[in-house]
Design a binder for these strands. Structure first.
Length: 390
DNA sequence: TTGGAGTCAATAGG
DNA sequence: CCTATTGACTCCAA
């Protein structure tokens, strides 16, 4: 077996990656990821060539985010690896972010440069099977460390925490030394910003308001806030979040639609499906379809790609580069190109389960239309016509 | 300032 | 433990 000569000579982990997001948040002391010592970031990938992730993101070809996340989920579950460990050590993200990313990847072309980074990291991570081993080793080490600590502090009520990349510097000292405004939240959890949790009725009301006006004016927001007895900022945040999450749902649908119809990943259907989606009812009576207590959201149509059986074995040179025309590429970039069959599999395979249950989707689309209208009006320099009381 | 994109981190369920 | 959800926050561009 002729091994490709350009094997990775990843020894010098010296790739100095410039600083990144400095969590200079002055909001809450929670000793999260600091960035003092040598490596500013969790240091994701191994050495590789001296390219920074950002550079690789910039030169990366279009990636199939859906296929990538699918694969990552598969690998993680197969090996009993958690999102937390994966996220913190490979992507530099928290568990919640990873969960979100894996569950609802946005299509590549809709991602910003920053948003593409995690996918490039994932692709790179997948490109070498040995990475899984490394992660599993980390997991073992973590567990060992945990056991050790637990053993050492028997019976004592110690608020120990798992420090991953050397960041625990808070112990052994008596709980007396009060740093500036550091933790004192033990006594009064109340003083620590209770985290607003909107009641189902409140969400319902907000959604209704959204249906009417995805972009409420400050005045409308004030009204909503006072009528629902919420802070103005909460209402504002809710609209921000809801809009962006609705948008994402639509992206997902787009991906699934693209996968459903035998289309190439490059060809973006200008208009998916369609046919009589004229019914943009503005005022739907009530969204009773939602069984509050349990999200009846169940659009999981697991499309299994039949051709996902074999995988690369021991660190073998993937990317056989079958295509005659080999463009000038260098080292790791290959792994970005070389995602096996997943691309074709995800797009071609698919006797998808086209469910005729998209009533909620309809509404979302309708709202999205309002969204567009809003922008057009804004562009036309006009003002919003009227108010609504939800 | 406003809105979008990305995330964080608390928290609800398993 | 682990994952999914989601209000709030940071950064950035128009």
């Amino acid at each position: 077996a002729p091994e490709s000569p350009l094997s990775s000579a990843e020894e010098s982990v010296k790739s100095q990656q410039e600083e990144q997001m400095c969590r200079a948040s002055i909001q809450e002391p929670s000793e999260t990821s600091e960035s003092q010592p040598g490596t500013p970031l969790p240091l994701p990938l191994p050495g590789h060539s001296g390219l920074s992730i950002q550079e690789m993101v910039a030169m990366s070809p279009e990636l199939d985010t859906y296929a990538i996340t699918k694969k990552v989920k598969e690998v993680l579950t197969d090996n009993n690896l958690g999102q937390r460990l994966f996220g913190e050590s490979i992507l530099g993200l928290t568990q919640g972010s990873v969960s979100d990313l894996l569950a609802r990847p946005k299509p590549w072309h809709k991602l910003s440069l920053k948003g593409r980074e995690p996918f490039v990291r994932m692709q790179l991570w997948l490109s070498d099977p040995r990475n899984v081993e490394k992660l599993m080793d980390m997991k073992r080490m973590e567990k060992k460390a945990y056991m050790k600590r637990r053993h050492s502090s028997i019976g004592e009520s110690h608020s120990l925490e798992t420090g991953l990349s050397g960041s625990d510097l808070t112990q052994s000292s008596s709980p007396q030394n009060l740093s500036q405004q550091q933790q004192q939240q033990q006594q009064q959890p109340q003083l620590k910003k209770p985290r607003v949790v909107l009641a189902p009725e409140e969400k319902e009301a907000l959604k209704r308001a959204y249906q009417q006006k995805p972009y409420p004016s400050p005045k409308t927001i004030e009204e909503l806030a006072s009528q629902l007895n919420l802070k103005t900022s909460t209402v504002i945040n809710w609209f921000h979040n809801y809009r962006s999450r609705i948008r994402r749902e639509l992206f997902i649908e787009e991906i699934q639609a693209a996968a459903g119809e035998g289309g190439s990943p490059s060809a973006r259907p200008g208009k998916s499906g369609g046919e009589g989606d004229n019914s943009c009812d503005g005022t739907e009576s009530d969204s009773t379809a939602e069984g509050r207590p349990s999200g009846s959201e169940e659009r999981k149509c697991l499309l299994e790609s039949p051709s996902l059986s074999h995988r690369d074995e021991e660190g073998e040179a993937e990317f056989p580069s079958a295509s005659g025309s080999s463009r000038p590429r260098g080292g790791i970039i290959d792994s970005l190109f070389g995602i096996p069959e997943s691309v074709s599999a995800a797009t071609a395979a698919a006797p998808p389960c086209r469910n005729p249950k998209d009533s909620s989707l309809r509404k979302k689309k309708a709202a999205n239309l309002n969204n567009i209208i809003h922008r057009l009006e804004k562009a036309a320099n006009r003002d919003e016509p009227h108010e609504w009381e939800f």
